Amino acid sequence: MFSLVKKNINFDFLGLRTPALIISSIFLLVSIVSFSTKGLNWGIDFSSGYVIQLKFNQNINISEIRNSFQKNGLNDSIIQYYGTNKEVIIKIKDDKDFKKTTINDFLNQSIKGEFKIMKLEFVGSQIGSELREKGEWAMLVALLSILVYIGFRFEFLYGIGAIMALIHDVIITLGVFSIIQLQFDLSVLAAVLAVIGYSLNDTIVVFDRIRENTRTVKKNSFIDILNISINQTLSRTIITSLTTSFVLISLLVFGGLAVKYFAIAMLIGIFIGTYSSIFIASTSLHLLGIEQEK
């Protein structure tokens, strides 16, 4: 069986728990401060703006449209194909320079060739606010469901440990988006929910090995059992993270703007999730006082 690490590796991960907790605390603090001062750069899905559907007589290159928009001072539009290469959906944030009466002039000035406006809609801030609220509820329900599931499968303290790791992953992932002011839209929300599931899967694999080893390994301390369990699952964790990252890098490079922020959020989340499943989740069990079975 293919393995990236030696089978009998015995690295002392828990010996690095203090530096790991300090690093995580710094990232969490910076993320929270960024939320408080800068907030998230909400995309049109969560704010107000215009949604425009255009139909052309011939195939159109959305890169040319995007470049033309940028030359005319519009840098944060979202443009993607709609069904065929002859139709596109354009999303533009609400701005004092853009009204329904002036968008036609802007489109005629920026786009070469004949086109027909199939749809021109204004998405109000109230709709964006409702989407934000539903997204927050989705994450809360996901975390509570995970707590119940792990509580039944393992025990309640394992569930608390998993939730601590997941909250850590979500806050830091969103913190990066806040610090760099990357656009946060529905695709990023989907990525955050996917990160929760991905990180949880990694954590459950480690927890399952910990539970098994607490029953079979009797002579070692609980910290030794945590280290043994992490080392035993390390190859699987690294391989899973690498293979998923390769797919996401391909999406980021070749997928275009429509999946750009989704891929970025997933890559950040996978990196943080892998780190937390090794250092944070297991350390949380130690801090919560879980003991090996006698």
Rank of each mutant, 00 (worst) to 15 (best):
V206F: 02
I272S: 09
I278P: 15
L242M: 14
V195H: 09
F271Y: 09
F152V: 00
L182C: 08
T240C: 14
V192E: 04
L251N: 06
A190D: 06
A194F: 11
V217Q: 07
I249S: 07
L200K: 04
A258Y: 04
I180D: 07
L285Q: 01
L288K: 08
L248C: 12
G151C: 03
I210Q: 03
E212P: 00
S284N: 11
I268C: 03
S241Y: 12
T233M: 05
S178Q: 06
Q232K: 13
L287P: 06
K260F: 15
L287V: 11
E212I: 10
I290Y: 13
I210C: 07
I225Y: 01
A281K: 09
L193D: 05
D185A: 15
D169A: 08
I167N: 12
I150E: 06
F207G: 00
I239L: 15
I228D: 06
V188K: 08
I239F: 02
I150C: 04
Q181C: 04
L252T: 06
S245L: 15
L267N: 01
I228N: 10
Y158V: 01
I172R: 14
F177R: 05
L252A: 14
S235T: 10
F207Q: 02
S229T: 14
T203Q: 01
E293D: 10
I167W: 15
I230K: 05
T214K: 13
I272G: 05
Q183F: 15
L234H: 14
N220Y: 12
S245R: 00
F156Y: 15
N201A: 12
F177Q: 06
Y198S: 06
S245W: 09
Y275H: 10
D208A: 15
A165N: 02
D169R: 06
K219M: 13
N220M: 13
Q292D: 09
T243S: 14
I228K: 11
F271G: 15
T283Y: 13
L234K: 09
S178H: 09
L267E: 03
G161L: 03
D185W: 13
T237F: 02
I196M: 12
F262R: 01
L157P: 01
L186Q: 11
I278T: 08
E291P: 02
L257D: 13
S276R: 00
E155A: 08
I163M: 03
D208K: 03
S284W: 01
A162C: 05
V253Y: 10
I163D: 04
I150N: 05
V192C: 03
L288H: 11
S282C: 06
R236M: 06
A194G: 14
N227P: 12
V192P: 00
G175D: 08
H168K: 04
I278W: 12
F207R: 00
S187K: 12
T203N: 03
S250P: 03
I230F: 13
I167R: 02
I172D: 05
T237L: 01
S187D: 12
L288S: 05
T283S: 12
F207V: 04
N220V: 15
S178G: 07
S250Y: 05
V217H: 08
N231A: 00
S241T: 04
Q232L: 08
I278V: 15
G273E: 00
D202W: 08
Q181E: 08
F184M: 07
I264H: 00
L288W: 02
